[in-house]
């Protein structure tokens, strides 16, 4: 019986597995960066569209992966989030392609 009681560690691992699988399954790009701007998570959609594997992206400064993003709206939005804790919305109407994925 005791083996059926999940440990906190087990639960966290299970949640991580489910979360990763959901984030990899959706038809959109998801990237998670830390407070230093380094890539922690890079989903499958992004792997396909960017040609860069999650393994290759992990730990790299996100903005260095796309030098075109220098001074862009996305770069300011990231800055607002990291520096000031502010949430930004980049609409499709005003930002046709926030990442340079489709013109390569």
């Amino acid at each position: 019986m005791e083996t059926n009681i999940p440990t906190l560690h087990g639960l966290a691992e299970e949640l991580l597995r489910i979360g990763t699988s959901a984030a990899n399954g959706i038809n959109a790009g998801i990237v998670i960066i830390d407070s230093f701007g380094l890539v922690w998570f890079w989903n499958r959609w992004l792997e396909e569209k960017s040609g860069l594997t999650a393994e290759a992206a992990a730990g790299k400064p996100f903005l260095k992966l796309f030098p075109e993003l220098n001074n862009s709206r996305l770069a300011s939005a990231i800055d607002a989030a990291l520096k000031h804790g502010l949430t930004s919305l980049l609409s499709q109407s005003l930002n046709k392609a926030p990442l340079p994925l489709f013109n390569k």
Binding site: H84, L86, S88, L89, L94
Partner: peptide, 22 residues
């Protein structure tokens, strides 16, 4: 597109005000 674009414009302006306050 109006609703979506305006939401972003509002977001830019409100966030900038709070960045300055911050």
């Amino acid at each position: 597109m109006e609703q979506e674009a305006l939401t972003e414009i509002g977001n830019i302006i409100l966030n900038s005000c709070f960045s300055a306050l911050s």
